[in-house]
Every structure is written in C-alpha cells, then in structure tokens.
Amino acid sequence: MNNYKTKKVFLDQGSAADIIYGDAFDRLGLKESDLKPYRGTLVGFTGGRVSVRGYVEIPTAFGEGEFFKKFQLKYLVIASRANNNALLGRDTLNKLGAIISTSHLTIKYPACNGKIGILRVDQEAARGCYLKSVALYGKKAAKESHRITGIFTQEDLRPQPLEETKSVRVKDKILKIGSRLSKNQEDRLITLLGDNLDLFAWTINDVPGIDPSVITHKLGIRPGAKPVMQARRRMSEEKDKAVQVETNKLMKALFIREVQYPTWLANVVMFREANGKWRMCTDYTSLSKLEETWRCMLIVKSPMAGDHGEDLKEAFAQLRKYSMKLNLEKCSFGIQGGKFLGFMITSRGIEVNPDKCKAILDMKSLANV
C-alpha cells in the first residue's frame, strides 16, 4: 500500500468500504494534506457510527512478479483503534477477482498474464490479531465489520433518483429545466427552447406523423403463427374511464381506427406512471409470436456543459427534418443526470438506478451462519 509492504490487512467481503485504521496512516508515509474531505457516514455492523477523518487515494499492489496486480484505491481513514492496519471491502476484492478460502487462509485471483496468483495468510499471525482484538474490545466487537452509507466526494457522487427540475415560462409555454444551471446557462437554454417551440406536441393533434418512406412501424408476425384472441378483461371503473379517454384521443388524432377483428385480439393494460397519470399499453403476452416491439426515446448527452446548446440544436434540426415531435411531459433540459429507461444517466455514463437496488444496498451482512 502506497509502496509500503503492509501486514495485518483484514479482508471483509461484507464491507462496502476500504479502510485505513489509526496510526497506520502515518506509517504509510501519508500526511494530513493528503486527506480529502468525506461527507458521508461510516456505520459499523452493530449500527454504531464511526468518525471519519477523510479519505485518501493510494496505489495498492497484490502479489509479485508475474502475479503482480495494482489498483488505485480510495481508503476511508478513521481514528478508531484496531489491531489491523487496514481493511479491504468487497468492491476491491471483486475488482481483484479474489476467491477467498477462510478455512485455508488463502486467496486466489487471476493475474494479468492469465495465470492464477495465490496469497497465503500466516495462520499464527492471523490468530494473534484476533486474540489481541478480543483483549482490546471483547469478542463481539472483534468480529465487527463496516459498511458505508455515505459517499466520497462531489466528483464521485452517486446519482440520485432524479435531479430536481424547475418550471420556466418560455413565451406562452411552461417547460422544465435543470435547477443547477448558472444564470447565463439558463438564459441561453431558454432562448434556444423558445426558438424551437414548434417541435413540441402540446396536444396529440399536434403530431403530424412521420413519412412512411422514412420509417414504418409494424408488428413482425412470424409466418405460420396461429391467431390468438384474448378473453376480455374487466377493469376497475377508474381504469375503464382512463381507457375511454386515451382511446378517444388516439381515434381523434387518426392514430387508430375501429375495426371488426375476429382473429387477432389483445387487451389493453393500464398502469400508473410516476406523475400519477395513466398509461395505456397493449398486452402482447398471448401474441408471443411477435418479433419485437420498441419505444422511441431520445437523450442528448454532452461531454461539456458549454457544448450542450450546439448539441441540442443539432438534435432539434433532425427532429424538424423528419416531422418528429417531443412529448412535453417527458422532456427535461439542462440536467446533469436523471432516470432514463430504468437506468441513471450521469457524467460517468450509464449506471444502475439506486431506487431499484436499494433493498440490496441496505441489506446487512449475516451475523450468524
């Protein structure tokens, strides 16, 4: 660690943090100026909170020679006393590709050359560490592991479910933009949106349709597939009214028409969106011979905030060229991150939506086996 050969490193597959304990920070040649601020909270296995001095990034190497692997790791630095110098959590062990055998006190991992590296623990030293920990804190505390509930720094901030937006008036319309824009960025964005208000569909009648020579959507039914007629499903009164409203909208816009369909027949399915409104979809469960279905979604992502205006102009030009319209209720502009097709889009790229894995992230490590 930090070019020092480090002993007494505890490997904890139940911990979400890498930790440097007590005076090991000084013995690794690190200074207080190397620490970066940490705004999160470190929670022990028993639920107690642990004071964190900050975090530090240092190189950490495993193995030697042809089995050498090296990573730049982030360690939380805590003042708590411990018989170990450091702790490596599950993220680092996963990055290493480590397979741990506690009964053999051995770690195996894939080396860069395709061979298998092996790290063996000194059994006598490991037992000595445990006995000293028991003497210091008691048997229960000696087994305590840690998990992290906070974050590292602003640069590494994990994405929140959705950045807050605010409503702004653009001419006579209301649009949603990011709440973290500077005054100059906000003014330029509002001007750009005002010049392209014709691209928004304020009602379903504002959607002219796309020329069939550009694209045509159809159900790709496999030849020889047997027709399926689903039985009618009864809905609640609220859902039934929502179906009537949505159907009338589509018929009025000439998106659909009424036909007598004696062979293929599928029910509609209603589900409530996050904004509280109903969405009507078609149940293709029985029509499983279809090749594919899709929804058209669009994201304009810019590597630099200053380039976003030009990127939006290019996207708007393409939309106008093919007579495509944007759904106002689905649009947000100038945001730094948010939900998209069930994932989170941030400056780092595409990530898992934390809402969808909250239960797993909050799961505590097993106390007993």
Rank of each mutant, 00 (worst) to 15 (best):
K8F: 07
K8D: 12
F10I: 08
F10M: 15
I19V: 06
A24L: 10
F25D: 04
S33Q: 10
D34H: 10
D34W: 07
L35H: 13
P37Q: 10
G48N: 04
V56Q: 06
V56M: 05
V56T: 06
E57F: 06
E64G: 05
K74N: 10
L76R: 11
S80V: 02
N84M: 05
A86D: 06
R90C: 03
L93H: 02
T102R: 03
K108P: 00
Y109M: 15
I116G: 01
G117R: 02
I118C: 10
L119D: 01
E124L: 03
A135Y: 11
K143L: 10
I151P: 00
D156N: 09
P159K: 11
E163G: 13
L175E: 10
I177C: 13
I177N: 13
N184C: 03
L189P: 07
L197A: 04
F200A: 07
T203E: 15
D206W: 09
V207S: 05
I210K: 00
H217Y: 07
I221M: 11
P223I: 09
G224V: 02
R234F: 08
S236H: 12
K239I: 10
K241H: 12
K249I: 05
L250A: 11
K252T: 12
A253E: 09
L254K: 11
F255M: 10
A266H: 03
V268E: 04
V269P: 01
C281K: 02
T282G: 01
D283N: 07
R295C: 12
M297F: 02
L298T: 14
I299Y: 13
V300Q: 01
K301F: 09
S302N: 14
G306N: 06
H308F: 14
E310L: 01
K313P: 00
L328P: 14
K330S: 08
S332I: 15
S347H: 09
R348W: 04
E351G: 02
V352Y: 07
V352C: 09
D355V: 12
A359F: 12
